[in-house]
Amino acid sequence: MADLLAIGSRRGLRPALPLLLPAYLWLTVAIFLPLSAMVFFSFMTDLPLAGKEWSFTLGNYAAFFSQSLYSTLLFASLRLGLEVTLWCIVIGYPAAYVLAKVLKGRSREAIFLLVILPFWSNGLVRIFSWAMVLREGGILDTALNAVLPFKINIDLMYSYPAVIIGLVHSYVPYMVLTCYLTLQAIDDSLIEAGRSLGASRRQVLWRVIIPLSMPGLIAGSALIFVPVVGSFMEPRILGGRTGTFYGTVIEDQFVAVFNWPLGAALSFILLAVVLIILALAAPVLRRAA
């Protein structure tokens, strides 16, 4: 019986194979093998290149757990991810609600497109554009001094808030998109029913709308939290010296310090954290999709 089943499934897979193989071979060579290689390298003392001596070691992981610097930075990155995600919810959710329930027809379509358009444009350039706004003598500084009667110096550039602003700007369209999709699916009659049964606006919001749009909120949060924890370019450009996070330390191992095995170990620890988060969010994500 088991043999029969096996033959049956092979019959199913064989005709599909020529169509599937090229794409999955490519993904294997460029994604899955590299990720496995990274795990392998993270247990090495040195790269096995040009006859260099190497052996297996747990030292790279020991470095993470013995030096508080790395775990401190990992927590700083997790905190950054959490803060950016919360700001994206606070800013993005109301906009998603207005898009889904207030705007109609062509204006909804146009504004929806406008919200997600920057998201698909170059992230690096958008981060750079904030430097124009935030630096001393930049637009924010000039504009506020033109309006306010007293002189103030706004120099947010190279600070923690600057990193937050840049990242929220980069990722808030994700939240609008995922929340919009679930909010749009909520039947208006449910909201009306709640209202006509005597619930206040606030009660309808907390008891009907937010629970029903939870999948969108969680999907958006996972999609934002994960890349923010691994961000390095945004803190580098907008954070300056205050912008040292877990991601920038990994970057350093590969482009400045050239301690690749340590970099691989740090990357793998990040990957483990990310996978745990995605696994926690997966059931909700699957239901949303």
Binding site: I31, L35, M38, V226, F232, E251, A264, S267
Partner: peptide
């Protein structure tokens, strides 16, 4: 879903 930092460094290695 995996941050590009991880994919990118893994590819490099």
């Amino acid at each position: 879903a995996i941050p590009w930092l991880i994919t990118g460094t893994a590819m490099l290695i």
